[in-house]
Design a protein around this nucleic acid. Sequence first.
DNA 1: TTCATAACAATACAGCCATACGATTATGGG
DNA 2: CCCATAATCGTATGGCTGTATTGTTATGAA
Lengths: 194, 194
Amino acid sequence: MATEGFEAVTVARTAAAAGISVGLVQHYFPSKDDMLLHAFTHARNRTQQRVLADAQRADLSGARIEHILLDALTELLPLDERRRRECRVELAFTGRTVDNPRLAQSLGESNAHLRAMLAQAIRNGKECGEVPNATDDSTKAARILATLDGLKLHAYIEPDTMTPTAARAALAEQLRRVFTGPCDHRPSTKRTRR
Amino acid sequence: MATEGFEAVTVARTAAAAGISVGLVQHYFPSKDDMLLHAFTHARNRTQQRVLADAQRADLSGARIEHILLDALTELLPLDERRRRECRVELAFTGRTVDNPRLAQSLGESNAHLRAMLAQAIRNGKECGEVPNATDDSTKAARILATLDGLKLHAYIEPDTMTPTAARAALAEQLRRVFTGPCDHRPSTKRTRR
DNA sequence: TTCATAACAATACAGCCATACGATTATGGG
DNA sequence: CCCATAATCGTATGGCTGTATTGTTATGAA
C-alpha cells in the first residue's frame, strides 16, 4: 500500500508479499475487508503508541507541555520519507473511511483516543499554569486534532506550498494559542499525565 | 458517488444513470480515469465558483472581510445534507489523490486558486485596517485552507464530536487571528477585491 | 496413541468491469 | 445532394480478483 497504492493491494499479492498462501490469509481474515480493517487499526495503534511513548519519555524531562505536544504531533506529519509513507497509507485509508462504516468506526475510536490524550494534556497544562483555567479542553483538543489532519493532508499533497517546516510552524502557532501561560519549567512533583 | 460511494461508480452504471450507452461515454472519455478526473475538476470548479460568487455579492454590502470569508468558507463545510453529499465526494476524491497523480494535480491547481483568492482577501484586509500590515498573506492563506480541510474531514467523519457549528466556530477563531484589526465597516470607495 | 482442530497450500470458479470493436444514425459544410 | 465526421449504440472479451472448496500437514490435549 505504501509503495504501490491502495488499489494495488490484492489478497493474492498480500499473501505473496507475506510469503504465505492465499488460503492462509483467508484462514485469519474471512474477507478482504476484514484484512484491511485489521491493517488500518493495527497501523494506527502502532504509530499512536509510538508517539505516546515518546511523549511520556519527554515528559520526564520536565519540559513545557506545549513543546512536548508539538514534538509528539509533529511526528505524525510527513516530514521525511518514512513518515511520508505512513501518511500515504493513512490518508488513503481515511479516504475510504467516507464510504466504509467499519473503517469509519475504527478511525473514530482512534481519534477519540487521541483527543482524550490531548484534552488530558491541556488539563495538565492548567495545573501548571501553561493554560488558562477557563479553557475548554475538549473543544481545543478537537480543534488541534482537526488542524493536525488538515496540515497532514496538505503537507502530503502539496509539499511545495505546505512544507514540513511550515506545517510544523502552523501547528506550533495553534498550540501557542492554547498554551498562553508562562511557567517555563514545571515543578518536579507528581502529576497525572497519561 | 454521492449516494452509493466511490467504489460503486462503474462506467456502465454511469452511462445508465445518464441515460446513454457505454459507448458514448467512451466517445467522450477515453478511459474511466479520464471520466473521473473530469468529474472531479468539474465538481470542484463549480462549488468554487459558487462560493466565489456569493463572496463577491456579499462584498458589495460593505461587510467586514473577515465575516464575508467566514460565510464563504463555511459554505464548504458539511452543514446540511446537501453539503454533506458534496463533502462526501470531495473527500473520497481527495483520498484517491494520494495514489493518483492526475487527480493530485487537479486538486493542487484548485487549491492554489483558493489560496490565491484568500491571500488577496487578506491583502485587501490590510488596506482597510482589518489585518496588520506585517501579516504574511500567503502563509496565513495556506494555514486557513489547511484548517478548513481538516475541519471538513472531521465534521464529516465525526459529526458528533465536530458538529457543524463547532467547525464554524473553529474557523471563525482561525480567521479572528488574522483579522485582528478594528474597522467595523469599510469605506464605500472602490477597492481591489479579487 | 488418537483425534479434533488449527495451520497451511493449491486451485477452481464465478462475477464483474474496463475496454475494444463493429455497426448505425445524425449532421453540417461544400 | 454528398460525404466526412461526430454521435450513438450494443455487445464481446479478456483479465483480474475475491472467495469457496478441497486437501494436507502440524499440534497439542486426552
